[in-house]
Structures are given as C-alpha cells and as structure tokens.
C-alpha cells in the first residue's frame, strides 16, 4: 500500500515555512481556513492573516491591493468559489492588472464527493486558463504540492494552484524537482502517451503498468503546469509515440485535453482520446463511486489507451 498524503495539509504547512522565510507573505481566506488548511499559517502569523468572511469577491480584490503594495498574498477558498464566484475580480483586479496574487484553491474536481455538484469544481481550469497572464498548476501529490507552492511564491505574476480534497498516493520521492512550465516523464514508453495531471496521475501510472502486461509500452507524462503548457513535451510525445490520451478531473472542454489537442493539432496531429467528465454535472456520492461512474479511473484510462492505439495509422 502506497502512502497517502493530504495535499491541503502540505499546502498549509508549506505556507508556514514560506511565512518564516519571507515577511511579505500574507494569507487570506474566506471562512474556510480549517478546510483549505490556511489555519496553520493563521495560527502562526495572525498579524499577517486575514479572514475575509464569506466574501470571495472582496478577498480577491483585497489580495490585488496587497500585491500592488509589494506583499505576496496567498488567497484560498474552494475551487468552485474561485474562479467561479469571483471571476470578474480575478479578471480585472488580478489578471488585467498583472498583479502578484497567488490563488491556491482546494476541493477541486469530482473527488469532493458527498457535497454534490454545487461543490464539485469541474469548470475552474477552463475559466482560469482563459485569463492572460495566469500561471496554472495542478499538483499530482504532496511532494509536488510543496514545491509548486514554493515556486508560485517566487514566480512574479498571478498564479492559480488547484488541490483536491482527498489524500493522494505519493507519485514522487523527496528528491523530485518541480520546474514551472515543465512536464515530467514519469514512465518512459514508445507506443502511446498518457498525459495526466492532479489526481489522474497515479491512475495513469497504474494503467500503464497493467497495459505493459498486454504488450503496450505506455509513456506517462505528468503535466503539473497546465498554463503555460509544455508544448515541447507534447510535440515529442506525439512524434515519438504517435498517439495521446489526456486524463483530468475536469470537464472535457477547456482543460488539459483541449489544450493538448490544440498543440497536437497545430504541430503534430496524431489520434487522441480524452478521459474527462463529459458535458454533464455529477451527483453526491463517495469520491471513488463518482470517479467510477463518470469515467475517471485506471480502468477508463486503460480502455482509452487500447482504443486510441487502434486508430494509429
């Protein structure tokens, strides 16, 4: 059994570490600090912590004002509320003003589970990636989360980091080096490439292992930075493996699959398949039940690989 670690916990603890190193780091939350785990920072540095109450629009514009005055604000809430509830504030106060605001959102995707569709962020990546000047990161495990949060703190410009609610198995060991804007080949392969992010990375690896027993040599590419996307890695995957499956916990439109398809269509067209939520909202249920019902598991990735390989010329 692989160790499972909470990405939110890791985020909270990494914030404390950053706060110790840099007095300009400030944290905002919208009445969710025990859920987003900004509470660790809030307990440690109360003078730099601002609970905005249930008012995400205000929180984002306050963060922008802080950033305009040299602070590095980390603002957190659920992924359904940012960008959903405060898209215009993110667009005008942050993206257009090109301010150094870090939005770290939790409870992304279907794996929120029981709370149902209002709380399942399945459109957030499409919305946030539509904004010029944003960097968008979706870590695959706790190791990557810690490094991504640190990278965002150093990066000049608006950042969006999406974390999920459940604990996730570790994909990486401690010596992993996250690099902003770079994909990581976590399993080499020559027949097909699965490009995945977030909670889909571990199932993608598992699927590749199963497919190996069928004689399919499947490359697995983790794409933690969705924007700006690593075009070179995608083009190499298309050229070297001749087919691609994209896997994400998001609607099929506007997320990883669409972005990869654009790069592929432009530079090196190959057959593609998309493991993602089809054009629908989901229901309440246990995360595992939902991922199964809506087609986001190891089995679904493996099936998509088999189908896509058949379409190779």
């Amino acid at each position: 059994m692989v160790d499972e670690v909470s990405l939110r916990e890791t985020y909270g603890k990494t914030l404390v570490e950053l706060g110790r190193q840099n007095p300009d780091i400030v944290v905002l939350d919208a009445d969710l600090c025990p859920s987003t785990m900004t509470r660790y920072f809030m307990e440690k540095f109360p003078e730099r912590s601002f609970d905005c109450g249930i008012a995400e629009q205000n929180m984002v514009s306050i963060a922008a004002g802080l950033a305009a005055s040299g602070k590095i604000p980390f603002a957190s809430t659920f992924a359904v509320f940012a960008p959903g509830r405060c898209f215009d504030q993110i667009r005008v106060s942050v993206a257009q003003a090109r301010l150094n605001v870090k939005l770290v959102v939790t409870h992304g995707g279907l794996s929120v589970g029981e709370d149902g569709m209002s709380h399942q962020a399945i459109e957030d990546l499409s919305l946030i990636c539509s904004l010029p000047s944003f960097t968008v990161i979706i870590p695959a495990d706790a190791v990557e989360t810690a490094q991504a949060v640190k990278a965002a703190a150093t990066h000049q410009g608006p950042c969006y980091i999406r974390l999920g609610r459940p604990k996730l198995p570790l994909v990486y060991t401690g010596d992993y080096q996250f690099e902003l804007g770079k994909a990581v080949t976590i399993r080499p392969g020559t027949d097909i490439t699965v490009i995945a992010l977030g909670i889909m990375v571990a199932p993608a690896l598992q699927a590749a292992g199963e497919l190996a027993t069928e004689g399919i040599d499947c490359r697995v590419l983790n794409m933690p930075t969705l924007k700006p996307i690593d075009e070179a890695a995608i083009i190499s995957a298309a050229a070297e493996t001749g087919s691609i499956v994209a896997a994400e916990e998001h609607l099929e439109h506007g997320g990883l699959g669409s972005t990869v398809a654009q790069v592929v269509a432009k530079h090196h067209p190959v057959p593609m398949e998309f493991v993602a939520l089809k054009d629908t909202y989901a229901k309440s249920g246990k995360p595992a039940e939902l991922l199964e019902r809506y087609g986001l598991t190891t089995k679904h990735i493996a099936q998509a690989v088999r189908e896509t390989i058949k379409r190779k010329p």
Binding site: F50, Q57, S61, G65, A68, Q89
Partner: peptide, 17 residues
Amino acid sequence: GGSLGQGLSFAAGMALA
C-alpha cells in the same frame, strides 16, 4: 479599473499593506 465595485476592496488592500 473598469468593472465597478472592486476599487474599494483594492484600496483597502493597499491600506492594509
């Protein structure tokens, strides 16, 4: 600016800083 209603929050952010 340009989208009304956001400026007071922004100004408050600068005051807070």
